[in-house]
């Protein structure tokens, strides 16, 4: 008697098929990949000049664009697409097979990871070529970047799965999710310099993960001197990793506890 493929193998297969399905939607591939670059082009043209410590706006917004890509491809995509998959019957069909929910999550994570990887790749290339972005040279900075991206992708995916239980239907999902994501981005310093936001907004955003994600990515791409211009005059790298880890764990617990294959 042969045994069932392991959770990890099924998760890997889910990931590959999710990517293949995603790449068949040509428009959405082009748009998702280039959206952060386009945003950066717009912001880079509107806000020219320096913030402080020789940091140009475009350099500052690079962090915001990466964080924005993270929340869009993870949280927003999943919180909209999973209710749609629930409505069109594809989740129910999976539920009728031996695949565990964990494999389904692994597949989604692989899709989000791949999509972010491609976006960041194009964003960095575009930034260096057209907007005079400087990339960090120390291995230490890249290591922190990898850590933050790991926590960010994990957290964004897990919270997206967790939030997918909120919209009542697939059709209504984007109406619920998109405003939340946009407001969250305004509050967290994706589109503006965080320290120039009203105080109450800053405090509110400090509880949520996106602000920390932006700040963490800034610590990688901005010169260390710029840390003086942050809220506490430091990068707070330890606290950033801690907050992101807490949100990741919270997202995992909620999504595992509340995930539903179908609406009964």
């Amino acid at each position: 008697m042969k045994s069932l493929p392991s959770t990890w193998i099924m998760g890997w297969r889910r990931g590959m098929i999710e990517i293949r399905q995603f790449t068949r939607q040509k428009e959405s591939v082009v748009f998702t990949t280039l959206f952060p670059v386009i945003l950066m082009a717009i912001f880079g043209s509107v806000f020219t000049g320096e913030i402080s410590h020789g940091v140009k706006f475009s350099q500052y917004f690079l962090a915001g664009m990466i964080a924005s890509g993270l929340i869009n491809s993870g949280f927003q995509q999943l919180a909209i697409n999973i209710p749609m998959e629930r409505d069109d019957g594809s989740l129910k069909r999976l539920r009728g097979t031996p695949i565990p929910a964990t494999s389904y999550f692994i597949g989604k994570t692989i899709l989000v990871f791949t999509s972010i990887f491609v976006q960041v790749f194009f964003l960095l290339i575009g930034g260096v070529l057209f907007f005079g972005i400087h990339l960090p040279t120390s291995a230490h900075k890249w290591l922190i970047f990898a850590l933050i991206m790991f926590l960010g992708i994990g957290g964004s995916t897990a919270l997206g799965v967790a939030f997918s239980n909120v919209p009542k239907s697939g059709r209504g999902a984007s109406a619920v999710v998109i405003p939340i994501v946009i407001i969250l981005q305004f509050f967290s310093g994706v589109f503006f310099v965080f320290t120039q936001l009203p105080h109450w907004m800053q405090q509110f955003a400090s509880v949520l993960p996106l602000k920390w994600l932006c700040q963490g990515i800034r610590s990688v791409f901005l010169p260390d001197a710029f840390a003086q211009s942050e809220v506490t005059h430091s990068w707070e790298t330890g606290r950033t990793l801690l907050v992101l880890s807490i949100w990741l764990i919270l997202g995992l617990v909620i999504s595992i506890r509340t995930f539903k294959w179908n609406r009964e």
Binding site: Q21, D88, G89
Partner: peptide
């Protein structure tokens, strides 16, 4: 199941 209506991109 009764009909499924996913995007069918595969």
């Amino acid at each position: 199941l009764q009909s499924t209506s996913d995007a069918g991109d595969l």
